[in-house]
Write a protein that binds this DNA or RNA. Structure first.
Lengths: 241, 241
DNA sequence: GCCGCGCCAATTGTATACATTTCAGTGTAT
DNA sequence: ATACACTGAAATGTATACAATTGGCGCGGC
């Protein structure tokens, strides 16, 4: 089979299928046939089934009536909703963290991350390195979610973030698009500062509202990009209509 | 194998395992062994694996490192958090419904359900029939979630509700416990009225707040019951500590 | 005594043959 | 013309043998 990472055939097949789905090679609604995939990947049906099960757990596939799996369809509206839902869940995570209180060590750790992002802004105000920002931003969102004392909330948030277009780092711009991008990042970073401050001061409602507003930046960026497709983000390939 | 419903061995096995987990016969942390289960259910390993996959999708099992599945552990705190999370998601669903607007037909349908619950209250103020209330209450929660225009939010809410202790109908009292139960139901029903009114008037924030407060009733009821276990709710059997 | 190494049993991973179900196509009867 | 039942290919469901991996236990060396 194609050289993809993983220790078992099932994991490799899952990786392979996941890539194909995210790239849009397997559009929403496509039915997956065990035999065809098994032949294509040069493995037996058993690991193919296993792989499909795993992707169903991730929410990328749905079980079809009468057995089998279908690639889950995501409409453009679904993508916007998933981003908003991420904001709601992040907001809940931050509110619970604020209400429960967070140790100063953890607060300092987050502040360190934020400082790293700050350091990426030059004094001149030109756009920071997008690769670096994307990585740090994702790290920030992961670590801030870990502040939430509820494992249930953490895991459901993680679940929503695993949808390829709902991740906080999904729609970081590909190229430098005028001032829009820089401005968005400046605002987002202001949110980052405010979020940790709200948590530190145990202002739960404020933390929650900030997380929601923060997600709306991602949503707005997507809405603006969608109007001018251009070389669209690959994670959008799986949108069906 | 034991006479459980389902058309395939895998579905029967999933049903059987689900029952055992919810009843607490398979406590959190228990590792499930394919061979043992297969012999016990008198089927082969294949449908057992299939059943475990399905339960993993439901969130009742987790994949263990090195393969296999483990019964997911739910602490008492997890149960409380899951109820609160249900409130958050129901709140989001209602808010989105209110913001988008809902047709008067659907509003009337919900109002009809509420009226049916109202009819269960006698003029004397004695407790309504719990079976009937539980059924109508569950129906209300299902139907009101359907008002949400976002399929993503609906499905994630459905997912959380599928946790056996987070369902709106999970902790309806078993016997008539003084006035506590009656009072709770009266308050809950007031919330029901207010929710649909908020949606009708497109008051999103109010609808959201109501849904959260509504879930807190369920949470408080559980907290009070937990202090005096008695003949506890069976859905609580899967709590590990 | 303790650590590491390797073996063995237990467990999951995989392939494959066979059974069953599903669904579309087709024919017939009404 | 429509509804229904039959048919058969194609798909998933199941059993089972075998392979590979894991994890624990004991043996040996240090």
């Amino acid at each position: 089979m194609t050289e993809t990472r993983g220790s078992t055939h099932a994991k490799r097949a899952a990786y392979d299928l996941r890539q194909r789905i995210v790239k849009g090679e397997l559009p929403g609604g496509t039915r997956l046939y065990e035999v065809a995939l098994a032949e294509e990947l040069e493995i037996s049906r058993t690991p193919v089934r296993e792989a499909m099960s795993r992707l169903a757990e991730e929410g990328l596939l749905e079980r079809a009536r009468g057995g089998g799996f279908v690639v889950r369809s995501f409409t453009y509206a679904d993508v916007l909703d998933a981003i908003e839902l991420r904001g709601v869940l992040e907001g809940t995570a931050l509110r619970l963290a604020a209400e429960a209180g967070v140790s100063s060590e953890k607060i300092q750790h987050i502040k360190g991350l934020i400082a790293q992002i700050d350091a990426g802004f030059s004094a001149a105000g030109d756009p920071p390195d997008l690769e670096a920002y994307s990585g740090l931003n994702e790290q920030f969102h992961d670590d801030i979610a870990d502040l939430c004392p509820s494992g249930i909330v953490r895991s459901e948030l993680q679940r929503v973030k695993s949808l390829p277009f709902a991740s906080p780092s999904a729609f970081v711009f590909r190229r430098r698009e005028s001032q829009t991008m820089t401005q968005s990042i400046v605002i987002a970073q202001a949110h980052h500062h405010a979020m940790i401050e709200a948590i530190e001061r145990r202002e739960g409602a404020r933390a929650e509202a900030l997380a929601r507003e923060h997600a709306l930046i991602a949503r707005r960026n997507l809405e603006e990009k969608a109007l001018a497709p251009g070389e669209g983000n690959p994670a959008l390939a799986l949108i069906v209509d």
